[in-house]
Amino acid sequence: MKVVELKQESQKLTASLSGELDHHHAKEIRETVDFAVREQLPPKLVLDFTKVTFMDSSGIGLIIGRFHLMEEYGGVLEIHNPSPQIRKVLRLSGADRLAVIRNHIGGKAEKYENTQ
């Protein structure tokens, strides 16, 4: 199973992550996402956590690193659909203040979890 799938649209790059985001998997995600970001320079990078079942502080390192990467050239970072476990780790680290967190409700409406 691929741990990251990329989708490019005009104004954003979406990285859909899957499975367990730990130290073992973080490297592959980081390399794949960074390569695409440097190539496309999207105004917005979305890390979609819908299919992520677990994340530890390795995921925080990944998020902080991508935040700085986007910040380098004025892009923004969004985090979509983190599970309650992931949100708890985000809150503890303060990484929830680096990105807009959005939750899709039933695939229709969107709710802002926070605002920058």
Partner: peptide, 14 residues
């Protein structure tokens, strides 16, 4: 440099 967040013990403690 390896993007370790430095939060391992903080998570364990919390």
């Amino acid at each position: 440099a390896e993007e370790r967040a430095g939060l391992g013990f903080t998570v364990m403690e919390s």
